[in-house]
């Protein structure tokens, strides 16, 4: 059995196992390429029935316009229920990545928002699209990642996870995050998107877009909420995104790749890692581990 069939079969096994052991499962849908692959695998796992769970999007209100358009399209096409949650307190307080800093903003709008949504709906099993090749602390995380009441991850107290046996038992208030794409790499994702012809947000393909340069990173001017500093002037550049998050916190790369084939070629030849474009990973030492402990994905 070749590599792709193996990754696909493993992910489907994981998704079925998680649903079988769950009272109320939900799948995180971040609109990005990994989410798109995960959703596709979920459809395969239960076909001809639709996946027996809703999709959940934590909306910080700072996503790219094209992501919102894609979200709408996918919700219609999959026929699944889409729950959109925004931290209303954070929104009312006007929390934004520019004045409050990426760390505080991420905590309020993403981590707190996520915890609110999970508590409100009482979901016990939550699918996430994280991969182990993305970041060092993720490389240490189990496929079924157990969270104590309050959604905390304790890296020193992870459940032993042997063979393909996943322990889905939990006590009231405890939850499990499940990562079916744990063993996929960035290249695997692109190749799978290509082979399976899965639609993704057009921002992944290169196009002339308005950007400003901050700390050496290309930030796209997606709407007029971005404060333009004195001396700064948005310029048009041929750019694309390797990863998508909140637009002020997601840097683009210069690229001529306008087709899936060109993206795969570029990914293969690339010399820097995908999460380099994620500004929140480096805002404090060991920052991903700390965010995860608080309940971030």
């Amino acid at each position: 059995m070749n590599h792709y069939k193996q990754l696909e079969a493993e992910a489907i096994e994981i998704i079925r196992e998680a649903v079988a052991g769950s009272r109320k499962p939900v799948m995180m849908y971040s609109i990005g390429k990994d989410s798109s692959v995960m959703l596709h695998l979920a459809r395969k796992a239960f076909y001809p029935a639709p996946p027996p769970f809703p999709l959940l999007h934590i909306d910080t209100t700072w996503k790219f316009q094209e992501m919102y358009a894609h979200r709408k399209k996918m919700a219609e096409e999959s026929g699944m229920e889409l729950i959109v949650h925004t931290n209303q307190e954070g929104k009312k307080a006007g929390i934004n990545p520019f004045t409050h800093g990426s760390s505080y903003y991420t905590d309020v709008m993403k981590t707190q928002g996520l915890r609110q949504a999970l508590d409100h709906h009482g979901f016990d099993v939550v699918f996430g699209g994280a991969r182990r090749d993305e970041e060092k602390s993720r490389a240490k995380e189990r496929i079924f990642s157990f969270r104590s009441a309050g959604h905390r991850w304790d890296p020193k107290l992870q459940r032993p996870e042997l063979w393909n046996l996943y322990n889905t038992r939990m006590r009231p208030g405890e939850t499990i995050r499940v990562f079916p794409l744990s063993n996929w790499t960035e290249l695997d994702i692109w190749q799978y998107l290509h082979v399976e012809k899965i639609p993704i947000v057009p921002l992944y393909f290169a196009k002339e877009r308005p950007v400003v340069i901050r700390n050496g990173q290309l930030i796209m001017v997606d709407d007029n909420r971005i404060p333009i500093e004195p001396g700064e002037k948005p310029q048009m550049r041929m750019i694309r995104f390797r990863t998508l998050g909140c637009y002020p916190l997601t840097a683009a790369i210069d690229s001529p790749a306008t087709t899936m084939e060109e993206i795969i070629a570029e990914t293969f030849n690339t010399v820097s890692s995908e999460r380099q474009g994620r500004l929140i990973d480096s805002d404090q030492p060991g920052s991903m581990e700390k965010k995860k402990q608080e309940g971030y994905f």
Partner: peptide, 11 residues
């Protein structure tokens, strides 16, 4: 180096 035109072969 990988070029887009070899991609089918590469895949």
């Amino acid at each position: 180096e990988l070029h887009a035109k070899n991609i089918v072969e590469y895949l």
